[in-house]
Write a protein that binds this DNA or RNA. Structure first.
Lengths: 348, 348
DNA sequence: CCTCGTCATTGAATCGATTCAGGCTGACGA
DNA sequence: TCGTCAGCCTGAATCGATTCAATGACGAGG
């Protein structure tokens, strides 16, 4: 133990024949150190296998090279893609990321806020449980900058990055309409979930733009947004009016619906159109590849880190921004681009 | 800024009318502080909204309340379940987790090893790129304890937690045999992947136990272990001998294979049996629920944290252990428990 | 030859919690 | 009354990197 204990700047300085201040400078502001000296220092560092102690730097500077990341879940494609992107982008800038999985439980949010405040995290990228995130005050107190993700509110004291879900809903429904549908069925979750409400709003906007009344949207609200729930809705739709055009608030539901329809001999896309949301991998796994609204999760993560670093680096003159990313429709077999030959012309 | 700067033990001590040493003791060894004093201290802490500075403690103690977690990917059900479990268990013990996504790239492993060594992580839970993980030496140097996950080697200097993949393979094939199959098709990835080799070995063991020759195992090695690759194999199998019994090395392949078989009118389970591996959510998403080998990912994560904490707390007298977790067969429609009525008696 | 400016380097204070060797107090037994 | 002891508390050193004012060296310009 003892031998490896305590190799600090001091030891490096001794070996390189310079002062600790110079070693520190060589590490942090190489440009102000003479080349020869710098080389000698790095030589010594290598020779001693010196690993700087970030705790000392954090203590002195008051801020750690650490970004907290708060997400409700990890075992969920949407969030895990974000986590992945954030992790990569943070690493590119030499920041460690401290992962906080809140399970949407406020106590956990508070708990992690505390832990990461103790660590003096430089910034926190947060998918907040409630929009204003009052539980993060501990972080604010120690100077941690906040970036809100996905669930955007009027975030007076920080940047935020989100996705335009209204646009996503609009894209989906616009596509269905342009494929000849005269009415659309929206299979949605509860409107208390912002995303669900937004996508519904987008659907209405698309109808309005096409000159159709709001009554052309039939909304079915399910409690669980799973494949199985989708399957049940699919069976139900199979018994309903002909040639439904269905927009599902996520891919699970969409895949289930296609399954339910097929069970009853309703083919997709020739006898029904289905559009999902999320463009998750299961969109490609079913018998019919799913047309779906892709969310720029990777871009979100990257953008969030950029904001966080901007907050950290620019200091007082930093101007907060709100980044709104645009989803994109990925057209596949379940609702192809060109109206099916067998399908009639747009009704009316 | 200035007002919130610098609320340390000293300030708390002043307000509570005690020394900093006492405040520190109240926080870390409450039992040695008189109750009245302790109350006064906590009162002051609350009043001042004091957030201890973990950097100072880390500096002094030489170790941080931080566990590094190295995984190859996050956007992958197997790993994200582990990450989730580790994150939860670590939080229960008041440790922050530092997430390192290596993408199986050695440079990243080295890079993160460095970053987390600088942070003086107390322990690292690592899914190593190569078994012996020589790239983690920086961590060892600063006293970070290592726990190897999933890819176990003779890990002389640490605990390890893994899954018995041989048993997993055996369970799957034993099930197929007990359902009347006289031969089994294994759809596998390259044997250079340890898991693939192990599951193959398990398959052979099951055959041997049933008194069947190794030639009763037909192995098909695919390069990509995706749903799509599975679909291709399924089509191929549909053209082959009757009533195949297929064991797939993951659920993606299994789902694809069922799809491919059905395209050609081969029904599952009446005309073919399929067992997957991993028991991921997509096992339930297809038209036929998948029989699959479930991996105790959650337990793995929990166990890994327990090992890590044991390493950290027990110090010198700690005895390393190797935990081998047992997978479990989850029987569903694609290979049901009772031989299908339509199926013949076990051949020979 | 002197002065001044530039560039490289250094000494020493500082960040805040931990820790340990004492110091003080009051109770109790002798 | 005094000694002893347990229980509680404190002073001060310590961890290692950062930072800034200050020093020194050296060359150019006068």
């Amino acid at each position: 133990m003892a031998p490896t204990q305590g190799i600090g700047l001091a030891e490096v300085a001794r070996v390189a024949g310079v002062s600790v201040a110079t070693v520190s400078n060589a590490l942090n502001r190489p440009e102000i150190v003479a080349v020869a000296t710098r080389d000698r220092v790095f030589e010594a560092i290598r020779e001693l296998d010196f690993v700087p102690n970030r705790a000392a730097a954090t203590l002195r500077r008051g801020t750690n090279h650490l970004i907290a990341l708060f997400v409700p879940e990890v075992a969920n494609a949407f969030y895990s893609e974000i986590v992945s992107a954030v992790a990569d982008e943070a690493a590119r800038h030499d920041f460690v990321i401290g992962l906080c999985v809140t399970h949407d439980e406020p106590e956990r949010e508070v708990f992690f806020a505390n832990s990461l405040a103790e660590q003096r995290a430089a910034a926190a990228i947060v998918v907040p449980i409630t929009a204003d995130a009052p539980r993060l005050s501990q972080l604010r107190r120690v100077g941690t900058r906040l970036v809100l993700l996905d669930r955007i509110a009027a975030n007076a004291d920080g940047c935020s990055v989100g996705i335009d879900d209204v646009l996503g809903g609009e894209l989906a429904v616009r596509h269905l309409l342009s494929s000849g549908a005269a009415a659309v069925t929206l299979v949605n979750g509860p409107h208390s979930v912002q995303q669900c409400a937004d996508r519904h709003a987008g659907a209405l906007r698309a109808l309005a733009a096409a000159g159709l009344p709001a009554s052309a949207l039939h909304e079915i609200v399910v409690d669980a947004m799973t494949v199985d729930a989708g399957r049940r809705v699919g069976r139900q739709l199979a018994a309903g009016p002909n040639r439904p055009a269905v927009f599902c608030v996520n891919d699970q539901l969409a895949v289930g619906i296609i399954g339910g329809l097929r069970e009853h001999g309703v083919d997709v896309p020739s006898q029904a159109l289905v559009v999902g949301y999320g463009d998750q991998s299961l969109a490609l796994d079913g018998p019919v590849p799913l047309t779906s609204v892709a969310q720029p999760t990777h871009q979100m993560g990257v953008e969030a880190v950029r904001c966080a670093l901007a907050e950290v680096n620019e200091g007082a003159e930093h101007v907060h921004r709100t980044v709104q990313l645009r989803p994109r429709l990925v057209v596949r077999g379940s609702a192809p681009a060109i109206p099916e030959p067998g399908r009639g012309a747009p009704a009316r």
